[in-house]
Structures are given as structure tokens and as C-alpha cells.
Write a protein that binds this DNA or RNA. Structure first.
Length: 559
RNA sequence: GCGCCUGUAGCUCAGGUGGAUAGAGCAACUGCCUUCUAAGCAGUGGGCCAGGGGUUCGAAUCCCUUCAGGCGCACCA
């Protein structure tokens, strides 16, 4: 739909360019959008208005010339009308025949029709969640997982080769702290009254890991110093946590292609190697006994330390190595999804990638804002310190993975989200995921009915011999138009990395369908009409299914 | 103090790479089940797009500024 308009307008523009004497360097990329109000037309372009200045002519006059040229070239055959309106919009309204033909194309090859190829097989890497393996995933990580997963699905459908990756911070002091916490709990449980580490982890999971160790090894380490047996506790605890995180993500329906260990980067020598490259470029220097990276040269506020004066690497050092590794793997675009509280970290990492020669546009950080959980309309207090936070596991068990994912995707990523657990549990109109799934299930039910009644004609595939011109109710035309908008919507979501656009679209489409369903019967005594309506139902179902698939949410046949 | 994000209907939020009369869901009120799932539908009301200035043919959208909220400003991760 969009491409046809662009082609037609482009052709007209080409003819007009000669007589217009358009100044060089004026951009003539044609912006196409859906009009705000359906009565204005099906699709519109603002081209005339954006050319007005360069041509020194009123926009409406330019629009008129474009429309006349389209008509003169006979390219207006798919339109019922083309109008110049408002300040200079060119509004196109399609003929019914065009709508039917498009619907037919959708039905005969869903993926080809719905999935706009903008990726061309280019490689994209999306790193998300990447929570420290020092505790269970909480609800905020769940939001990151939902967004990363949906974005991966969208980009993959848009023709990118996508790799989903989880970065494991298993090298730093946090893992050591985890080990110390478990060690302390272990000693205490066995009667050795040692002090619990000052900033140790306090969650119940610390206790259960320690109990597990006691069960497996008895009092083997009772009284042994942490220096001697610390590695055991660290490894045991973080591997346990990592396994639990992997389980949670699996049950949430999010699968990663690669789990990259930070420790491994050190062991392979990647950290030293990447620093050596920066040193060769003259971007590292010593000052106050520490080693600095000249990130300010690339837009950071100040330079950053990579090796502290005590000889230890900073967290930033391994991040340099990790992102260098991403570049070496020849990704066209690198996307990092972080909690919004890490936003201050963006300039320094951007500096690294710039230093290594990646164009700015090829690195994208998506920030995930906080989730506050509401129960009985009141916020549930969560604090990291006391470990009173709602885990992703609890959310999955309480409301289900589908609902949680959908709700996480009902907001822009960088906007705060109130997650109302009572609404999420409620199976009603208030709960948007059921509303959309219900539309899908209803259609499935219609097809079961049609099957039972032995309706001939459309059986769920193929439109041969079916006359779609029977679809002439206003609701039917609206639905067809909405369906045809999906590719544009999808393309926009992919280009802007915004999965939530699909969530909104699905709710709108479901609304149109529920409304139609209540007003008109699909299965009627008129077989030709029934067949045409079943075609429409199938198309709605296909688009709902496709959209839900992008969000990582299931489309149930029955509810 | 500096930086980033946010401020849109009673509530929760879309719209934000400038475009037409600013939308949705919820809440409130009124109707609709002998017919394909009422987890549904139809209707009604609801707005100085935080305030002020600017750029533009045109601003919720871009720029400046004020106010309010959140989050960052380590040789922590």
C-alpha cells in the first residue's frame, strides 16, 4: 500500500521536476502517512507542503499539479478519489477493488505481505537482561526481557539476522560478595557465629543455597576461612543463580542465542587485547598511577579509568572488550537494552564504539524505565537493600507469562510502567491481553462452527472462487483498511525499535473485530457471503497471530 | 551544581523524525445475551497537551526558559 503510493507520487514528481526547476539538494523523499480521520482518505502525503518553500508556491497549488500529473499518467486507476485538502495534503482513497485485491494478496501469502524487508540480511545483535547472577530476576528484568525478545522477533521478521545475547557479570566483586554472603550464612547455620558481610546479599535465596550446600557437603567447610574455600562458595552460588535465571527466562518464553561470560573475556585475554588496540591508537594514558581511556575525545564528559591504581580492572575495561568483540563479530547494528538508571553510562560506551570506528547510528541503547507494582491499587514497596522485590518468577506464577509480556509492552520502553497485578489477573476487558486473544479465539470458534455446519467455500486457506466483493458493510471496509495498514505499522516499529506500537495496533484491530462481530453474522444462509466473510475473518486472525507472535504472546484457539 | 528522562481527560498512557478537529483503555452513567464465546458490543459526558517565550505557512511534537517529579554524576558494578 505504502510502496504503491510512493511509486506513483515519485513518477509524477519526476515528470514535474523538469518544469519546476527544483533547486539542487532539496530532499524529495516522500513521506506517507495514515490520515488522522478515516473520512479524509486512506493514505496521505505531505510532500506538497514540504516542497512549498523551495518552489516558492502555495502548497495547495503544488498538490494540485501533482494530482493532475498522476491523473494524466493514468496512475489514478486504483483510487476512488485523490483530493487536495487542508494545508496541502494529498489524500488518496482506494477503490474497493484495490482493497479486495490486497486482501487476497494478504491471504495468499501472509508473510510476504505483512513482513516488510528492511534488514536485507544484515546482522543485528541485541543484548538484554544481563542481570548480575547474584540474585533472582525481578519484575524490572522481566520488562527488559519482554522488550528485548519482542524487538528481536520484529527485527528478525523484518529481514535482519538477529542474535540475542545475555552478558554474565561473573568476574566482579558482586559475585565475590554473593559467595561471601552464602559462606557467612553457611557458617552461621552450622553454629559458627561469624559476621555477615557489610554489604552482603540478604535474600531468602542466600539461605536456601547455603542449606543446599549443607545438604550436599555437610560441615566440610565449617571453620575453613573464606580465603581457602571462597572459590567453592562463589562458583556454587553464582552457577546456582545463573541456572535459576535461565529457568525463569525459559518459563517466561525468552530464549537467548548466546550467554557471554565476562570472566571468559579475561581468561581469553580479550580485555588486555582490546586495551592494547586502544593503546596503539594513542587513546590510553597513565595518570595518578591509573590507566585512563581518553573517552572525552569522543564526546564523553571526562576520561575514564580502565585500570585502577591498585592494578585491578574496572568494570568498564571488560565492557570495552565485550563491545570490541561484538564489533569483531561483524554486526551491522548493536543494540544494548539497559535499566534506565544506567543512562549515565551511555556516553562512555558510545565513545568506545566510536573509537573503534562504528558509526554512531549503528549503536543504540534502549533504556527500560522502572516498573512499579500495584496490588489492590497501592504500590508494593520494593527495595534492593532489604531484598524486598517482586521476582519475575512470582509474576509469571501469579499472572502468567503471556499477560506479563503483553503488559510490559503496552508502554514505551522509556516510560514508567504501573503494573497492576489485580488487573493482570482479571480475565476481563480491563485486561488488554485477553481482549486481543479473545478476538483470535472467537474467530477460531467461528471456523469450528463453519466446519460443523459443513459450510463450503472458504476453509481457512485459498480464495479461489470466492467473491470478496460481498464485503461491503462499512465495518468490513474499515477492517480491511486496518489490515492493510499493518505492514506500515510493522515497518515503523522495526525502524524505531518500538515494539509497543504493535501492542496498540492489535488492540485497535481487536476492537474493530469485536464490534463487527456484534453487528453482523459471519455464518449466514448466503454461502457466497459467508465465504467472503470467512476470508475476512481469516485475514484478521492472521494479522492478530502475526502481531502476537512479534510480542512473544500466544494466540489461543479457545479461551 | 552539571547531565539525562518525564509532565497530555478523574486515573494509566498513546501520539513526539513538525501537519488537518489531540486519541485509547479504565473509572462514571444508559442500553444490548432463544442466533457464530457477554473475557463482548452500542451510546453519553470529560482537555489553557505543566507555565512563559521563540522558530515556522503550520508546534503536544523543534529551540530557550521557569516550575514539578524521577534517575544519574566513582580509580562501584
Amino acid at each position: 500500500m505504502k510502496q504503491e503510493i510512493i511509486d506513483i507520487v515519485q513518477a509524477a514528481l519526476k515528470r514535474l521536476e523538469k518544469q519546476w526547476e527544483l533547486p539542487e539538494g532539496i530532499k524529495t523523499n516522500i513521506e506517507v502517512e495514515i490520515p488522522r480521520n478515516e473520512s479524509l482518505g486512506d493514505i496521505t502525503t505531505t510532500l506538497a507542503m514540504s516542497l512549498a518553500k523551495a518552489l516558492k508556491k502555495p502548497p495547495r497549488e503544488i498538490a494540485g499539479e501533482i494530482v493532475n500529473t498522476i491523473k494524466a499518467a493514468g496512475r489514478d486507476n486504483i483510487f476512488e478519489k485523490i483530493e487536495v485538502a487542508g494545508a496541502g495534503f494529498i489524500n488518496f482513497t482506494f477503490k474497493r477493488e484495490y482493497l479486495y485485491q490486497s486482501l487476497e494478496r494478504l491471504l495468499s501469502n501472509e508473510y510476504l505481505f505483512l513482513r516488510v524487508d528492511i534488514g536485507n540480511g544484515r546482522k543485528v545483535q541485541i543484548e538484554f537482561v544481563s542481570a548480575n547472577p547474584t540474585g533472582p530476576l525481578h519484575i524490572g528484568h522481566g520488562r527488559g526481557a519482554a522488550v528485548g525478545n519482542a524487538l528481536s522477533n520484529i527485527l528478525q521478521a523484518a529481514g535482519y539476522k538477529v542474535q540475542k545475547e545475555y552478558y554474565i557479570n561473573d568476574a566482579g566483586v558482586q559475585v565475590k560478595m554473593l559467595g561471601q554472603s552464602v559462606y557467612a550464612k553457611y557458617q552461621q547455620a552450622l553454629g559458627n557465629d561469624i559476621k555477615f558481610p557489610e554489604s552482603g546479599y540478604h535474600g531468602a535465596y542466600i539461605e536456601s543455597i547455603s542449606e543446599e550446600i549443607i545438604k550436599n557437603t555437610g560441615n566440610k567447610y565449617l571453620g575453613t576461612s573464606f580465603d581457602e574455600c571462597g572459590n567453592f562458595f562463589m562458583n556454587y552460588a553464582y552457577k546456582k543463580m545463573l541456572a535459576q535465571i535461565a529457568d525463569d527466562l525459559r518459563d517466561f518464553g525468552v530464549a537467548f542465542d548466546k550467554w557471554q561470560s565476562e570472566k571468559e573475556l579475561y581468561e581469553k585475554g580479550d580485555v588486555d587485547d582490546s586495551l592494547a588496540v586502544l593503546r596503539q591508537m594513542g587513546l590510553l594514558y597513565k595518570q595518578d598511577d591509573a590507566l585512563w581511556f581518553a573517552s572525552a575525545k569522543f564526546g564523553d564528559d571526562k576520561d575514564r579509568v580502565v585500570i585502577k591504581k591498585d592494578g585491578e580492572y574496572t568494570y568498564f575495561a571488560s565492557d570495552i572488550a565485550y563491545h570490541k568483540d561484538k564489533l569483531d563479530r561483524k554486526f551491522d547494528t548493536i543494540i544494548d537494552i539497559w535499566g534506565a538508571d544506567h543512562h549515565g553510562y551511555i556516553p562512555r560506551l558510545r565513545s568506545v564504539l566510536k573509537a573503534f570506528g562504528l558509526p554512531e547510528k549503528k549503536f543504540k541503547v534502549i533504556l527500560i524505565q522502572m516498573v512499579s507494582l500495584l496490588r489492590h491499587g497501592k504500590p508494593v514497596q520494593m527495595s534492593k537493600r532489604s531484598c524486598e522485590f517482586i521476582t519475575l518468577r512470582e509474576v509469571i506464577e501469579e499472572v502468567g507469562a503471556d499477560t506479563a509480556k503483553f503488559i510490559f509492552l503496552t508502554r514505551r520502553a522509556d516510560s514508567h510502567l504501573d503494573f497492576d497485578i489485580d488487573i493482570a489477573k482479571e480475565q476481563s476487558a480491563e485486561n488488554p491481553v485477553f481482549y486481543v486473544q479473545y478476538a483470535f479465539a472467537r474467530i477460531a470458534s467461528i471456523f469450528r462452527q463453519a466446519e460443523e455446519k459443513g459450510v463450503q467455500g472458504f476453509k481457512g486457506s485459498g480464495v479461489q472462487g470466492i467473491n470478496l466483493a460481498f464485503l461491503k458493510e462499512a465495518e468490513e471496509i474499515s477492517i480491511i483498511k486496518k489490515l492493510l495498514q499493518y505492514p506500515m505499522l510493522f515497518e515503523g516499529a522495526a525502524l524505531s525499535f518500538e515494539p509497543h506500537r504493535i501492542t496498540f495496533y492489535l488492540q485497535e484491530l481487536a476492537k474493530l473485530f469485536h464490534s463487527y462481530y456484534n453487528k453482523h453474522r459471519v455464518i449466514t444462509d448466503n454461502e457466497a457471503l459467508t465465504s467472503a466473510r470467512l476470508c475476512l475473518c481469516r485475514a484478521v486472525q492472521a494479522v492478530l497471530e502475526e502481531g502476537l507472535k512479534m510480542l512473544g504472546v500466544s494466540a489461543p484457539e479457545r479461551m
